[in-house]
Design a protein around this nucleic acid. Structure first.
Length: 332
DNA sequence: GGCATTTGACCCCC
DNA sequence: GGGGGTCAAATGCC
């Protein structure tokens, strides 16, 4: 691609494609808020996955836009701080959308396990972040929240006996797209770490979702997140919580939502820095459990997409159906 | 001042 | 009785 074309793109602020991303994102975000959980079988799950794929593609376009802008700025020796901030904000929102889409789908599949109207069963929510598969303990999972003791008069504490809806063990803390409020912390016997207790912040929507987070291993760090119940709230993160990287720098996992995507590199990201403990994402405002506040963790970790920009992509998405064309490898 | 977190106490279950 | 889950007042932060 010639430099003249680059300049042409740069003079459109924002560029057409980028503004299209913004429009698509806000439209889909608006649609998202109309209803939260899919209730229509495979169709709903398919739509959720398609939405996640679209968001991922839009994210890539946002990153492309910023990447091109950076090059243009180098050529023109000019800065456009506002557009950079804008693209980063959009990228963050898009990542959250993708995460929420995946979480919704997994929860939905999980919720459907006991129903025999579908052959899809998800039992393994683990994923690799270090190149090796995390061990899962899913015994007792997939059972609806049970409230056995309803005694709740003042002075007596209501206690719930429940089984986890689902749980996962990861080497990083995952932002599932929802906001959580920490309501307790407990040292668990035979472990060196606290267990933290969280509730969904959307109490006004009667959302009863809860989760427990506990560090189960020190080196490499493993965090076990156990979810109880399902979100009934319609919204998710709206606040400007601190965004921290969601992908481990040593991640070797690559998700592809499109058959047309060709992966030119197995390992997209450079090797991890020496610090072994990377609690990379904290969904609540300030997570204080010992496992999350790791002294070795650099506070201002670079957002991974800045590394992703160093990589080569070939992404082709059908504009007529879902989206946005992205071809990074053609030009620079 | 409002909101989130911390932390000690209370309560239930095994 | 001990471990684990929850509550709520105290505290901190913005």
């Amino acid at each position: 691609m010639s430099l003249s074309l680059i300049f042409l793109i740069s003079n459109i602020k924002p560029s057409y494609s980028f503004s299209k991303v913004l429009t698509n994102f806000h439209n889909q975000n608006r649609m998202e808020n109309l209803g939260w959980f899919p209730t229509n079988g495979k169709k709903a799950m398919e739509e959720e996955l398609i939405r996640g794929r679209d968001m991922a593609n839009q994210l890539l376009e946002v990153l492309t836009f910023e990447d091109k802008s950076n090059i243009i700025r180098q050529v023109k020796r000019s800065t456009s701080k506002s557009s950079k901030v804008l693209s980063k904000d959009v990228a963050q929102d898009l990542v959250r959308e993708v995460l929420k889409s995946l979480t919704n789908t997994l929860l939905y599949l999980n919720n459907r396990e006991d129903s025999n109207d579908d052959s899809i069963v998800v039992r393994d929510f683990s994923f690799s972040t270090n190149g090796h598969k995390m061990e899962e303990d899913l015994d007792g999972a997939y059972i609806e929240l049970q409230t056995l003791n309803t005694k709740s008069s003042k002075g007596t504490k209501k206690r719930k006996l429940c089984s986890p809806t689902w749980e996962k063990t990861t080497s990083v803390l995952i932002d599932d797209g929802h906001t959580w409020r920490k309501y307790g912390q407990k040292m668990i016997t035979n472990t060196k770490f606290f267990r933290s207790y969280y509730k969904c912040t959307n109490n006004d929507q009667q959302c009863k979702a809860m989760k427990h987070v506990q560090r189960t291993q020190e080196n490499p760090p493993l965090y076990k997140t156990t979810y109880y119940g399902y979100h009934t709230c319609k919204s998710y993160i709206q606040s400007d919580t601190n965004w921290e990287p969601i992908l481990s720098c040593h991640s070797s996992m690559l998700l592809s939502f499109d058959n047309n995507i060709s992966n030119k590199q197995e390992n997209l990201l450079p090797p991890s820095p020496p610090s072994p403990s990377l609690p990379l994402l904290i969904s609540s405002k300030e997570d204080s459990i010992e496992s999350i506040q790791d002294d070795n963790f650099p506070q201002n970790q670079l957002f991974p997409y800045e590394n992703l920009q160093l990589c080569e992509f070939d992404v082709y998405t059908d504009y007529l159906t879902h989206g946005n064309i992205l071809s990074l490898s053609e030009s620079f």
